[in-house]
Design a protein around this nucleic acid. Structure first.
Lengths: 202, 202
DNA sequence: TTTCCTTTTCGACCATCGGTCGATTTGATT
DNA sequence: AATCAAATCGACCGATGGTCGAAAAGGAAA
């Protein structure tokens, strides 16, 4: 039983509790109790309640994002295929927090914070990767566009905001239409025939 | 002295306090003291501290957005000019909350919530307006695109997220480049010559 | 004016929370 | 056994959001 394990134990407890209530309504004592340790011990491993949340966000997003990144970095694959991977990664990485049970469409403050942290994390991690991919596409003549970094950012922002569906919630059909619109805009905006990028999303 | 006035008085107090610290560090007693009333009276006018924040967000964004909306609804003006108005409105409506003095780049929870509320508000209010404008542009043959609503949403999402610069903070040049990229994507994506939409942002 | 009732105001009080702290246990090393 | 550092604990602290009953304010009716 090393530090690592106790750390995980506490994070597991918080994650379990998050399924039933939001963070505001979870007390540190509760986390301790669920983890089966004393409240004081929590503060032996974490400096604050916030830091536990931070660590949990990190734990949930770091791994899938890391694998998506390494996949997307395989430069032998075609740019569009790698873009599709990123689209997929964005879909998959949607919050473990959102998996909350009753999950009323939350005006919830803590959720907002977690979401913000997640968006920042995802965009800053994926933007350079996607930019590279787009640049490769430009060099190979498949993409015609002058602002690769901006294009990467635009795509990531729209994907993140729409797919997370928490920051600005809409019904699924609406989300699909926006994604289709984004694809269409990408096609027309980068000089590709209509429908050619459909595979990005199917 | 009606209800309305006391209401406003409390909101004014909160707004004043927000200039110097963030909401987590402002207590209800402090708001009461600043407003010059007893703490108990606060709860006569508002059910909770959160609801005071909500009301303040509403008060700050409702008005400028309403005027932007009515401007953008003047169908006699050309679609692009009206789009420019919306671009401008997005720029201007950036948070009274962000005007905070020291304003360290906040990982702050309350800020995240306020930002979320603002983004939801702005997008849901402006999307129908912008959609109409784009549809008009399509009819007049100035815009060639099949998903007017999606296009409206994409533009609003990118503008909101980037211009607010809190959800995903970057340096100003980077923001400018993304906006330029968005313009360029719009031009190429809607069949307009390069540079023709520059006026949207200058 | 006096009475009566509603609306408004208030701050002491309450439960609870995040976080601290000193005491205590554990357990490896000598 | 002796020792020391790492780990554990829960009583305790200050502060907070929110409650409550008492009391003031202010008409309206007598």
């Amino acid at each position: 039983m090393q530090n690592q394990t106790k750390h995980e134990q506490i994070l597991d407890a918080l994650q379990a509790l998050l399924k039933n209530k939001n963070i505001q309504n979870i007390s540190v004592s509760e986390i301790a109790q669920t983890a089966g340790i004393g409240k004081g011990s929590i503060y032996y491993y974490f400096p604050s309640k916030d830091s536990i949340v931070d660590a949990l966000v990190e734990r949930n997003y770091e791994k899938p994002l890391e694998t998506a990144k390494s996949l997307a970095r395989q430069t032998d694959i075609s740019p569009f295929t790698r873009m599709a991977m990123i689209f997929q990664a964005c879909r998959n990485s949607t919050s473990a927090f959102r998996a909350r049970a009753g999950a009323e469409l939350s005006d919830d403050r803590e959720d907002a914070f977690i979401r913000q942290k997640y968006i920042r994390h995802l965009i800053s991690e994926m933007k350079p990767v996607l930019t590279e991919i787009i640049q490769q596409g430009i060099q190979e003549g498949q993409i015609h566009f002058d602002y690769p970094a901006a294009l990467a950012e635009i795509v990531l922002i729209v994907l993140t905001v729409k797919l997370d569906n928490g920051l600005y919630p809409t019904d699924p059909e609406d989300t699909e239409e926006t994604i289709r619109g984004l694809i269409s805009l990408l096609e027309q905006g980068t000089g590709n025939p209509s429908g050619s990028l459909n595979f990005l999303v199917t």
